Simulated assay, not measured.
Amino acid sequence: MSQTESDVVNQVGTLYDQMAGFESENFGGDHNLHFGYWDDPADTWPLERAEERFTELMIEKLRAKPGDQVLDVGCGMGTPAIRLAHSTGGKVVGVTVSHEQVKRAGIRATAAGLTDRVSFQYADAAALPFAAGSFDAVWALESIIHMPDRVQVLREMARVVRPGGRIVLTDFFERAPVPERKRAAVEKFYENWVMGPIVKIDDYPGLVREAGLRLVEVSDISEQVMRRTLEGIAERIDHDRKHIDNTLGAELADDLGLSDLIEVWELGYLLVVAELPGNDTRSS
């Protein structure tokens, strides 16, 4: 691993160690701390329900079945992995570069009575500590965004999944050139959240192919995800601002705020589904 990659791992781990220590009635607990998904503009779900809906959508795309072994790359605090295990009857291993997330996710798996089917450990997605073909499916919900080399991470996912296995992930991307007046907000987001290089939707077929995978789907779901999530997060932060400042510090809270992105429609959200080619005796 190069020094640059090692630095990124440490930065991302430190960021999420700090974030894991913050909980309130609006953040943490059983919340899915990822973006939300509204199937239709007429849906009136609050952000918490939209976050749950996004986890459900990922589960639908993954197609895991009872007994399947699933890898959750960038597992966060463990809520999506636990819901995946509950919904599918599969077994889930979650990995993260945050020691604090590993600890707290494990506590949640214990509380859910799922320690026989859900576990969490520290691991770098660019060098997964698993044998080839260890998993029936892999997902990465808002984690490949942090990777400096997406192809390397996709290769690792391809290595550890069995032939015919699915890989489902999400990513941010540039829907259109970001105008100068909005560029500072995007640059702040990418820098403060330790993001990898920005990509375009047309990059993904090549990225997936270079990793030895077959592209099944790449969808721009920005309209279902971006604006309403950003508005919902801004409302949560406003409601909890004093507690956030006291816990994380006002400077860090300002750095991690996303409200500047609400009007940046040029920054979008992708859903990607790929498969490892090969014989697959499992039913679809």
Rank of each mutant, 00 (worst) to 15 (best):
E187I: 04
P197E: 03
S98D: 08
E100K: 15
V218H: 13
V225L: 06
E100P: 01
A211R: 11
H146L: 11
D220S: 10
A125L: 08
R104A: 07
S219N: 12
V92G: 06
I144H: 03
D202Q: 12
V160P: 04
L154E: 03
E210Y: 07
L213M: 08
V208K: 05
I221Q: 12
D136L: 01
V97H: 06
G133M: 07
F189G: 01
E210T: 15
V153W: 02
K182Q: 15
V102F: 02
Q224P: 02
T88E: 04
G94S: 07
V216A: 11
F173R: 02
E217T: 14
T110K: 15
V168I: 12
G89A: 10
V153T: 14
L215E: 10
E217H: 12
V186S: 04
R175F: 05
I82T: 02
F130Q: 02
Y204W: 15
A85G: 07
L215R: 06
P177D: 07
V194D: 05
A185Y: 02
V93L: 05
G164K: 04
A109C: 09
A126M: 13
Q224R: 14
A123N: 11
M147W: 00
I82S: 07
G106Q: 10
G212P: 10
V151H: 03
E223W: 08
T96K: 03
T96A: 06
L213G: 02
V160H: 10
A132F: 06
A126F: 00
